[in-house]
Amino acid sequence: MTETADWKNGARGHKFVASFSGGKDSTLALYKAMQVGEAVGLIVMLEEEGQRSRSHGMPPELIQAQAEAIGLPVYTAATSWADYEKNFMILLATAKSEGAEVLVTGDLDVPAHGCWHNRVTQNAGLKLGMPLWEMDHLETVRQFIDLGFVTMLVTVNLSLGMREDDLGRVLTHEYVEELLARGIDPSGRPSDLAGVEKMVGLFINTIPVRVKSGSFSFLELVRHLQQETLQAEAYSYYPLYDIQAQSPLKQALFDHIIVFENVPAQREIENVSQAGSFDFAVEDFTMEEVTF
């Protein structure tokens, strides 16, 4: 049995604590878990000052009101990204002492291997439950709306395609269609960034990487790079401008960029051609995938 075998049904028959942001995905995951298990509380991570949630910048009072509405206690910690895991582990230990056996999250796209939540739950002696894991993004949003949940946008990221006039909008099927028409995935988010359930748009970041070959053989170097990459995954969404600000090199931190594009371009172009969607056809198209 693989480590992912019970992720979708991890809360069944167990007491659990939910990693909660107040957003739609964590709410839907909590709802699904409560149908099959018993919730003992919610974990909410705050920014260093403790005035806003780490995920969506929501005031703790709002999340507290959500928790009180369903009769659950809230375990909170004000933390920086650097101390995020340490403080998250402390809250897991607290929840475990209150009877929690499982951590429930609202993640959809986390990888089967190298999952951050899986690692921290194992270290805490808990199991992992992700009721939404591998669900289609659009299906998740539509199911959330169909169940009668009401979501109002209270924060937007203007750099990711959202607009100021999106503030205050209620998430409906019609609004979802509007977002799709604007090229925005209403449930789009990175795979393992804690609590980004209401962020929408493209997540693109440039990450400075330093490689020291030393006396490694090629195989040893590849293994070393793989391990360092896995360890750095928790910080892969740290803003580039903040990294540059903390480095004496500033804008000269790096001078070469390797772009990874996970786009099935060849298949998509062939499908367009076959569909006859345009007045021209693309023929004899080939694509070579290169891994660095």
Rank of each mutant, 00 (worst) to 15 (best):
residue 197 E to P: 09
residue 197 E to S: 15
residue 214 G to D: 12
residue 181 A to N: 05
residue 175 Y to C: 10
residue 201 G to S: 01
residue 200 V to C: 14
residue 192 D to Q: 11
residue 175 Y to W: 10
residue 197 E to R: 13
residue 181 A to M: 06
residue 200 V to Y: 10
residue 179 L to P: 04
residue 213 S to D: 08
residue 181 A to G: 10
residue 195 G to N: 05
residue 181 A to P: 06
residue 179 L to A: 06
residue 186 P to A: 08
residue 179 L to Y: 01
residue 216 F to M: 04
residue 208 P to K: 01
residue 209 V to F: 02
residue 203 F to I: 02
residue 182 R to H: 12
residue 183 G to A: 05
residue 190 P to E: 06
residue 182 R to K: 14
residue 215 S to N: 10
residue 210 R to Q: 10
residue 184 I to A: 06
residue 185 D to V: 05
residue 202 L to I: 14
residue 176 V to K: 00
residue 212 K to D: 13
residue 202 L to V: 15
residue 196 V to R: 07
residue 206 T to M: 11
residue 208 P to T: 01
residue 205 N to H: 11
residue 184 I to G: 01
residue 210 R to G: 05
residue 208 P to M: 05
residue 201 G to M: 02
residue 187 S to D: 06
residue 214 G to W: 02
residue 209 V to T: 03
residue 188 G to A: 07
residue 207 I to G: 02
residue 180 L to R: 04
residue 188 G to F: 14
residue 202 L to W: 15
residue 205 N to M: 14
residue 176 V to S: 00
residue 201 G to C: 03
residue 197 E to A: 14
residue 181 A to H: 06
residue 196 V to K: 07
residue 210 R to C: 06
residue 195 G to K: 01
residue 176 V to H: 01
residue 206 T to C: 11
residue 207 I to L: 12
residue 187 S to G: 06
residue 190 P to R: 04
residue 180 L to K: 00
residue 184 I to T: 00
residue 176 V to M: 05
residue 214 G to F: 03
residue 212 K to N: 12
residue 205 N to K: 13
residue 182 R to Y: 10
residue 191 S to E: 15
residue 186 P to M: 08
residue 218 F to V: 11
residue 203 F to K: 02
residue 214 G to I: 01
residue 205 N to Y: 09
residue 194 A to N: 12
residue 214 G to K: 05
residue 185 D to M: 11
residue 216 F to N: 09
residue 177 E to R: 11
residue 209 V to H: 02
residue 188 G to T: 08
residue 190 P to H: 03
residue 213 S to Q: 11
residue 203 F to N: 02
residue 179 L to W: 03
residue 190 P to A: 06
residue 176 V to G: 05
residue 217 S to K: 00
residue 201 G to Y: 06
residue 211 V to Q: 07
residue 217 S to E: 04
residue 216 F to H: 14
residue 201 G to R: 04
residue 192 D to I: 07
residue 216 F to Y: 11
residue 180 L to Y: 02
residue 204 I to K: 09
residue 214 G to P: 03
residue 188 G to R: 07
residue 198 K to L: 15
residue 213 S to W: 07
residue 218 F to R: 12
residue 220 E to Y: 03
residue 217 S to I: 00
residue 219 L to W: 12
residue 211 V to H: 06
residue 180 L to A: 05
residue 188 G to V: 08
residue 218 F to S: 07
residue 219 L to K: 13
residue 203 F to S: 00
residue 218 F to I: 06
residue 186 P to Y: 04
residue 186 P to G: 03
residue 181 A to S: 12
residue 211 V to D: 09
residue 180 L to P: 07
residue 175 Y to I: 12
residue 180 L to E: 03
residue 175 Y to S: 07
residue 207 I to Q: 08
residue 191 S to Y: 15
residue 213 S to E: 12
residue 217 S to A: 00
residue 182 R to E: 14
residue 208 P to I: 04
residue 194 A to M: 10
residue 217 S to M: 00
residue 193 L to C: 03
residue 201 G to F: 07
residue 183 G to R: 00
residue 182 R to W: 11
residue 198 K to D: 14
residue 178 E to W: 12
residue 191 S to I: 11
residue 187 S to P: 01
residue 211 V to I: 13
